[in-house]
Design a protein around this nucleic acid. Structure first.
Lengths: 324, 324
DNA sequence: TTGTAAGCGTTATCAA
DNA sequence: TTGATAACGCTTACAA
């Protein structure tokens, strides 16, 4: 690998001059500058990041951490972060779980955005510091150097539920996600609260546990199909599960929404195709915003207040207008 | 940031001893080892990658490069790479376009897998070397240090076409992707060849140009709908466009497959839901395989022969069994 | 078993 | 306008 000394030698100057040219310092003669540039090109020299980072003690690189490969909104988030980073002259790398800590704890990256349920609070708390801000998505974690950005799950879920109730549904089932996650809890709580407000009773036996994957929705629906009497509405904590459930219903000749109403959460690509009533959590914007806050924190504009992103109900066709 | 010297000082040993402990060298006393470990824990010391990489001149890190955020099979590929890397004790990072070259040209990464149409051949050729192997996906690039892995588009598309012909279709339209891409060319060629073999004529005016996005399929279908006589089958170069087209047909009361057969390519998540006949390109496996070849090349087992992944026809419901 | 010291590729300070 | 040199955090001969 050709290094700065090779360039210096070929150009007949010292390495500090080469460094100065490359970093746009103005204390170098035009003629020299040009020669050095030409040599760099000729030798196809590329500065070594490790050396640079080591010396400077920091870098303009954002790290994004995730590890769920089943949910396509991650690509949208990545897209948002990537755009913001590009616009603001930051580099951007992504790490899946395992390697992540290494990149947080060296100064190869200047800050991290994490949306990874497999990442422990402990690791995040340890990594965050005065010189290493972190933005966490969909997780509430209070620390002077960590900014949480969470989706407001409660309000849109309550709106959605209220309207399903207004459509005449009285017998509900709920299909939940991983019980430990904040977003699942909020969505379920909104569900319960709206029922209570409308004096509709709900027995815990009509809560079905899933894991946000389509299969778990499919399985839950199969179980629901065994009931003597189908619920009038199945409220799901995310789209994947709702779609799995719809597939099971379809296979068994149960019509949606005529026989049962179904709702999801996420506004995934597929939810559009399936005309599933759901809640839209803006992906690209979320990524962009996270990057923006991270960079501001990196650059000293400290702001770690909890930020709530609002989500919108997407009313589509899996809930019938007016029921008998 | 606490460094190796801090640990050394606290433990009352030299930095080389700390280094030896951390790297599992056996030339260090049990008592010392234990003390050092404890101190590392206490100070929550984490080795600095920049220093390490700089000194060692290499790293066990795989780089993946992509920049298309619309196609969800990327997550599957990432999943495959991630798993292989984990299993073989490699770190794994992802870079979108811009930053990529920096990571290729420092020794922060030991090799790269690229699936990015925006990445130029030139950059790849420059980065590849004896000590930096590259695996390119869906691009044919011959170089002693670059292994191309391409999908065999031709054979499965020919199979699919043959069967559509066998179903009785005679009037075809083709909806193509970006004309410059190899995969689009191959898919189209297979289409043409099967028609010719079956002595079915095809006029270029029934080729519609798209860009692999759903919208372009929707638009093309709108144009097709203006024809006096609908084609019997619309063969699309990928699923996204096929789905866009189906949506347009649906909106206009055209039934699939009764009024027109439609096929795609990719076996995207949505194609399953829409029961679209398509070709499955295995995503996870492709990523896993790419990582495997990359690591083997990194570890000196040079192999840069072109590798063809075979894809499978997924026969579903958007082509009717036997036509009038 | 442990410590000393050189050096990886940069940048920054200071002197020329 | 340029160059010599120390330092960044680490690994690795080699010496003790």
């Amino acid at each position: 690998m050709t290094g700065i000394r090779d360039v210096a030698r070929a150009a007949g100057v010292s390495i500090s001059t080469v460094s100065n040219v490359l970093n746009g310092k103005r204390n170098v003669g035009d003629e020299t500058k040009e020669r050095v540039m030409r040599i760099c090109e000729e030798l196809s020299y590329y500065p070594n990041m490790a050396g640079k980072t080591l010396k400077k003690g920091n870098s303009r690189t954002i790290l994004f951490n995730f590890s769920d490969f089943d949910r396509s909104f991650f690509l949208k988030i990545i897209n948002g972060i990537s755009d913001y980073a590009n616009e603001h002259d930051y580099d951007f790398i992504i790490s899946t779980h395992k390697s992540c800590e290494k990149y947080m704890r060296s100064n190869l990256t200047a800050g991290c955005i994490s949306l990874d349920s497999r990442m422990s609070n402990e690791v995040l708390l340890k990594a965050a510091s005065e010189t290493y801000p972190i933005v966490v998505l969909d997780r509430v974690l209070r620390n002077p150097f960590i900014k949480p950005i969470v989706t407001n799950n409660y309000d849109p879920m309550a709106q959605l539920m209220q309207r399903v109730v207004a459509c005449g549904c009285r017998r509900f089932a709920f299909l939940g996600g991983p019980e430990s996650t904040e977003d699942n809890k909020e969505r379920y709580q909104a569900f319960l609260d709206v029922l209570e407000k409308n004096r509709i009773s709900f027995k815990r036996e009509h809560y079905y546990a899933g894991d946000y994957r389509e299969k778990s929705g499919y399985r839950a629906a199969k179980i629901i199909l065994l009931s003597e009497r189908l619920p009038e509405a199945l409220i799901c904590a995310n789209d994947n599960m709702a779609i799995g459930a719809m597939r099971a219903f379809q296979e068994n000749g149960i019509r949606v929404p005529e026989d049962i109403a179904v709702t999801g959460f996420d506004n995934s690509e597929m939810s559009g195709v399936m005309e599933l009533t759901t809640v839209e959590v803006p992906g690209y914007e979320r990524g962009y915003l996270a990057a923006q806050y991270l960079v501001e924190n990196i650059e000293g504009k400290r702001n770690v207040e909890l930020f709530r992103i609002s989500a919108q109900v997407k009313w589509r066709k899996t809930v019938a207008g007016k029921r008998k």
